[in-house]
Amino acid sequence: MVPIPAYIITDHKKSAFLLSSPGITNLTSTHVAQQHFEYILHLADNALILGQRNAEWCGHGPVLEQDIAITNISLDLIGQARMLFQHAAEIYNAMDDAGKASVEKLLPRTWKTYGRELQEDDLAFLRDERQYRNLLLTELPKGDWAQTILRQFFFSAFQYAQYEALQQSGDSTLAAIAEKSLKEVTYHRRWSAEWVVRLGDGTEESRRRIEGALQELWPFTGEAFKAAGFEDGDFAPDPARFRAAWDERVAAVFAEATLAVPATGTWSQEGGKRGIHTEYMGYLLAEMQTLQRSYPNVTW
């Protein structure tokens, strides 16, 4: 059996995924390291990109209280992204040469010219579009309030189930980040669910808007549950197992909102986890990265 890299198991009590997995013997430690790094980037990118999208509401919310609410959620998500990027950078800096070479394609080119260790901001702000691993759902335009709300609800309901499971991850740092974030995600899920109910069971206009949002967003919900190459079970739980909890939550909230749950087809929009993004992603990155690209290695 190939030895498991020491950085993955640091807490044996929490190593359920690793120890229960028979697949681990077929993997090289370099392959595990690569999947591990990419998975953490995926989690970080989801939080970062949705945090960036929600921040577009700053100063533009429909009423002051909700402007503050959506930007608070944005702040939580960016905080989560920071913890995850810090973790990813630490993992990378501790890798051996083979490990580092295996994740070469995910690293920002600009950083390579800096000649120093990898840091959280390099990962957040200097990668190219194809190097991001976020769900397509998170990068879609903020749209109107209904679209923002419904996207947040779909995402938070998924993130809740995912982070709940990650608390048992064999990576104890990741487990701690999940435990911490879950408390915030609980607020996000509740707040967005209440708004889905208000809009669905509200006025004719709010109903029209949320139904429009549902039509737009539903095809993007399936991607979350289809395991990417880096989600094959050793420390990253298979997302398919979150489907039932997510379906149940959506059904309960939609019933309250008097909305019909669309049929779950076999086809869904996907690609984000492989780095194939929608046409909206480039514009988002251009705005988000402009400072770091214009002033390389900038410090405050």
């Binding site: 909700q66 503050i68 609410a69 608070n72 959620i73 939580d76 915030e184 607020y187 509740r190 707040w191």
Partner: peptide
Amino acid sequence: LISQFASTACKSM
């Protein structure tokens, strides 16, 4: 309750 979120992350209104 006016809002679940307020001037800082730790407060509601």
